[in-house]
Design a protein around this nucleic acid. Structure first.
Lengths: 82, 82
DNA sequence: GAAGTTGCTTCATATCATGTACTACGAGTA
DNA sequence: TACTCGTAGTACATGATATGAAGCAACTTC
């Protein structure tokens, strides 16, 4: 098993995220802004904003760049060419 | 050699960054905002902002989260704790 | 079954941070 | 001289954050 995947010996830091928030997370982690996230998921930019805020609070982070870094550490997304 | 280090078979995407910009880059890549970067390097927030803008332009990126992702891909910084 | 509670999704307003586009100036240098 | 670099600034546009709240489903409890 990859060391970056959660091996159930450690509590999943993502467990408190709602399904919708788990959809938002990888988009933030790819460097998308709120407008792009909104377009991608067919919701308003405002709603996308709120999800990002909620994710950030639940994870105890200060800004969306830290969200991206967190997602990479947790293996939610890979480092890919964008 | 690590696949993330530049092996001179590919032009270094960081070669156009000034020494000071190369100092700023890893700080952005750790999720610091402009005020924190300014405090860390003993320069004004405005100057930090200018450096981030310059880096983003030179690398052809859209926002500071993409700068962070770029820095990780290039091996400028490691994925570390906070 | 009506009322209350809780969580999720959605959108909005107001404020703060970031991005964009410049100007400027001294030190160093090709 | 002309250039880059490092520094700092103004002004405005755009994006992000803080906070509130409406609508809905599921669930409990009376």
């Amino acid at each position: 098993m990859s060391p970056l995947t959660n091996g159930s010996h450690r509590p999943d830091p993502l467990e408190h995220l709602s399904p919708r928030e788990k959809e938002i997370l990888p988009l933030v982690a790819r460097g998308m802004d709120n407008r792009e996230i909104g377009k991608t998921l067919f919701i308003s930019e405002k709603t996308a904003k709120n999800y990002v805020t909620s994710i950030r609070k639940k994870l105890g982070l200060k800004n969306r760049t830290q969200i991206a870094l967190f997602a990479l550490k947790e293996g939610v997304v890979e480092l890919e060419d964008s």
